[in-house]
């Protein structure tokens, strides 16, 4: 079934659509890219930006929740995770008003902030599940030697959780890369992302399937590559760290 679906996709993309016989496969790409390279660039900036910012915020927090014993740490972790489950559509208008007030609508910065916010909970939770596997003795030993928490975080926790961090990064990356709804609300012109460009191609006025197919292929490249090369990380990320390989 899955092979079939993929073959269909390939067939759709490989053949020039018959009802526009003059267009060749490559030409679809060049036409489409010349129109849309800025949106592609926007998508890349937002995706990479939010991935980095998410990691900067969530790794220390995950570390803290794992190693600092304090009252309510479990509750705090649950609360952080639960914010991930809130549907973006429910937050769209309030955030829209907030960014309008800050005069940040239609900016890549706003998208990075919102995508980061939607990703932190997931990132915290999954990286915490990886930090938990660090032997506590190791941490304690360093504490006795007089290392600060910050040093432990940088020198011990991060190097020992590279796999986990990669998992988190992949998922934040994919989320931001695939996101449509928030971008629909937040972007006007300068900050439009690639999915917005694609969805504009299929609006009710005129569908040029050749271009759409080319755009779909480009949009699909990062997810496909990530899946091929980092399949193991994806499995543990999908289950929010509950399943480890």
């Amino acid at each position: 079934m899955f092979f079939g679906a993929f073959k269909n996709q390939n067939a759709m993309f490989a053949l020039p659509p018959v009802w526009i016989p003059d267009f060749t496969y490559i030409k679809n790409f060049t036409i489409m890219l010349s129109e849309s390279y800025r949106y592609l660039l926007n998508s890349i900036i937002v995706t990479i930006g939010s991935t980095i910012v998410s990691l900067v915020f969530s790794l220390p927090t995950a570390f803290g929740l794992t190693f600092f014993k304090f009252k309510g740490s479990n509750f705090l972790a649950d609360w952080i995770l639960s914010t991930r489950m809130l549907p973006p559509v429910a937050a769209a208008i309030p955030l829209f008003m907030l960014f309008k007030y800050l005069n940040l609508l239609d900016s890549l910065f706003a998208l990075i902030i919102v995508y980061t916010a939607f990703n932190i909970p997931f990132a915290v939770w999954v990286s915490a599940s990886f930090f938990k596997r660090i032997p506590y003795d190791l941490i304690e030993a360093s504490r006795i030697e007089g290392a600060s928490w910050f040093q432990i975080f940088i020198q011990i926790a991060i190097p020992l959780s590279k796999g986990g961090i990669a998992t988190v990064a992949i998922f934040v990356f994919i989320f931001s890369w695939n996101e449509l709804l928030i971008a629909l609300f937040f972007t006007v012109s300068e900050s439009r992302t690639f999915p917005i460009f694609i969805s504009a191609q299929v609006s009710q006025a005129q569908i040029i399937w050749g271009n759409v197919a080319a755009a779909t292929v480009i949009q699909s490249i990062p997810p496909i590559l990530l899946t091929i090369f980092l399949q193991k990380n994806i499995v543990s990320g999908l289950t929010l760290g509950a399943v480890k390989n």
Partner: peptide, 24 residues
């Protein structure tokens, strides 16, 4: 000159300009 589909155009135009946006 930038082109949009019918519903998308309406959405983008009115949301942007009602928020004092001057992109277009």
């Amino acid at each position: 000159v930038e082109g949009f589909g019918y519903d998308g155009l309406h959405e983008k135009q009115i949301v942007a300009c009602s928020q004092q946006d001057g992109s277009y």
